[in-house]
Design a protein around this nucleic acid. Structure first.
Lengths: 228, 228
DNA sequence: CTCTTGACACCTAGGTGCGAACTT
DNA sequence: AAGTTCGCACCTAGGTGTCAAGAG
């Protein structure tokens, strides 16, 4: 039971560093020890149990909950770039009843979202929570605002990447050594243009401060539901 | 009179690079060619003609107009830090009628305000206007929010500094070569806790979008002022 | 029929000067 | 009297789900 404090986040984050048969030691020391912990995990799990949905709009919509992580194990003085992308969970297309409705549409242009503070030294990334609150989701294939393009009615798994900026000449030859990827199963979601599950809507309203206007302030709303 | 296209901004910005008898050539090439142009100059001059006043509060107040500059002549790939400070225009203390009321108070702790994007390569600084809109002024000597501490009823001259981040070992030995300072006379102002000149108040209300609530929207207020 | 769009009311978050109350 | 402080109404700017209308 000892010495597991750090590896706990590994259990949760399932690092993709185990690239096929490659040993972890094949990674550069600047990334091999990096540990990532998801923030607001309880909330993410609450959504996940209902089947998380994220709204996509033409102009771009934020994620809620926001993807936020705490990072440890970086080289404090080394420079890192942090970024996210979204991979389709399966190649299926869903109908409103969550039945598979067909094969996935043609793959949308897959974009990367660089954290706006990138690049920055490890010390800066580790000293506080790293938040991707400026990331927006869109269903507009022609988007030119740098938002993440997703297909509505498809499921996605957010991925998080830590890239060590290697100052060594010809470092691109060893590029595969210099990054590490993480994903958290509880952050999977369905992209939608309108909520399909009313319980998701209610949980969003209850937990997102910007939706406070839709909260039922009547603690006794269960009584006296007058009907015409 | 030729070759003055660049030095035009120098006329306006009065670089402090001419450090006493030192030649400009004593500066590092990364800063010797830097040119800075004040944005919203016409508005600054309009305020300056009335005697600009800036509110200082305990919690910190933004400047209006905001100090913004356009920069050219940097080495695009060199790293720079940009910062501001405020120097007392004179050692006098003013009363509400702008009469000198005594010697200046003990010098407040002089702070530097680093532009939050610092450090960044020259190319990034030059590609768009650099804005110091997060800078706030306070009269709280014990401020721990990193705001600029000023004495009310004193006049100040904002200064703008461009610092080349020299990667050379022992570069601190040549530190004086690696920066260049600019100031714009029309940005001088009096720090106040409440406006003294009503014409300044009116110009602020007319030009600051956040003060729109105090504008006289009735272009025809002279007619039909119904009273009960 | 299912899914998408856009105007909308309602929030958060925070920048204005006002004016009464307060301090000196 | 002169200068400062603080709550306030009124803005900007932008993030919510809702609902009616539109598109296929």
């Amino acid at each position: 039971m000892n010495g597991f404090e750090l590896s706990k986040s590994c259990e949760r984050s399932l690092p993709c560093c185990t690239d096929g048969g490659l040993l972890l030691s094949a990674k550069a020391p600047q990334v091999s020890g990096v540990r990532v912990q998801l923030e607001m995990q309880a909330l993410w799990q609450q959504f996940d149990q209902l089947g998380t949905e994220m709204i996509v709009t033409k102009s771009g919509r934020r994620m809620f909950p926001t993807f936020q992580v705490r990072i440890s194990g970086m080289d404090p003085s080394a420079e890192y770039v942090l970024l996210m992308d979204f991979i389709p969970v399966d190649d299926k297309r869903y109908s409103s009843s969550w039945l598979v409705a067909g094969r996935a549409d043609v793959a949308a242009p897959s974009r990367m979202h660089f954290h706006p503070d990138s690049p920055a030294p490890g010390a800066q990334w580790m000293k506080q929570t790293v938040s991707f609150d400026t990331l927006k989701l869109t269903n507009n294939l022609l988007d030119d605002n740098g938002h993440m393009i997703l297909n509505s009615m498809h499921r996605y798994q957010p991925r998080f990447h830590v890239v060590f900026v290697d100052p060594t000449p010809n470092s691109h030859l060893n590029a595969y050594k210099n990054f590490c990827s993480f994903f958290f199963p509880e952050t999977r979601f369905m992209a939608v243009t309108a909520y399909q599950n009313h319980r998701i809507t209610q949980l969003k309203i209850a937990s997102n401060p910007f939706a406070k206007g839709f909260r039922n302030t009547d603690s006794n709303s269960w009584e006296g539901n007058a009907t015409p």
